[in-house]
Write a protein that binds this DNA or RNA. Structure first.
Lengths: 138, 138
DNA sequence: TATCAAAAAGCAACGCTGTTGCAAAATTTT
DNA sequence: AAAATTTTGCAACAGCGTTGCTTTTTGATA
């Protein structure tokens, strides 16, 4: 159990509750991103679905985790880096989905590339998801 | 009504049916991508939801349309370019979602950029979705 | 063109995901 | 330790997508 989970919650003005601690810990316990379903399964048991949904939403709102869109249309969540503030996400890194083990990684060191868009188009955010084989499956 | 819709169907060994013609036509009638819901609404008369789902799936299988993952987790569909063959999609272009009119565009001329992935990662496909203001909304 | 086999459409039902309202329980505040 | 606030759990619901089955339509054959 990461010793600072409680602190993270307090620093974000969140009450420290069993479900929040447990769910937040899941993110620290493993490298990849988690889908809602993973969390329900891994949480050991006994959290209401609604609680999980609300907890994740709270974490996203507070900038503790961010969402990752995937091709199979299931939202995944991963920890944010320190520069995410409340209501202000800065996730300019690439995401990677392994087609073999289905793990989703945040490639924090791979920066979203620049794009030359056609005339008239202005982009505020670019999402890049790479699909392939990860380092554990090659 | 695009005159060649029937031909497209025949060329893909698909029976020519009312729903297939109508749905395929919707893609030719407008520039953006379509979500399942859009199709149900726009199809004018009512097609069974299941028929729409199956028709879209068939078109994807045949390489007539391709799917676009979006941040709001609703699958969108758009026409494929000519080099998509059955079971073999080649959509190496960038997608653009307008945050104002919510239209999704295929930017066929903007090619997916190269990425330097960390050691051990190999990517087979890279999906890029840009979000911002489109040429009609600026 | 009439017939027939194969394909597609329509219908009913189901599971899964995510949401909302409300009451009970836990947490924080005093 | 009690009150006030937050969070949880429960029940119910809506929407999306799927599956199995029956009826209708299509395309091939005679």
């Amino acid at each position: 159990m990461a010793a600072n989970v409680k602190d993270i919650l307090r620093n974000n003005n969140l009450s420290v509750t069993g479900s929040r601690e447990k769910i937040l810990n899941l993110f620290f316990e493993q490298p990849g991103a988690l889908a809602h379903g993973d969390i329900e399964k891994r949480a050991g048991e006994k959290f209401d679905r609604v609680t999980v949904y609300r907890t994740l939403q709270t974490f996203v709102d507070k900038g503790i985790i961010h969402t990752i869109p995937t091709a199979d249309n299931s939202i995944r969540y991963a920890l944010c880096k320190d520069d995410c503030k409340e209501g202000h996400h800065h996730d300019h890194h690439v995401h990677f989905v392994c087609t073999q083990c289905h793990t989703t990684y945040c490639l924090d060191d791979v920066v979203t590339p620049e794009l030359k868009l056609p005339k008239g188009y202005t982009s505020t955010h670019i999402e890049v998801v790479a699909e392939g084989i990860c380092k554990n499956c090659k």
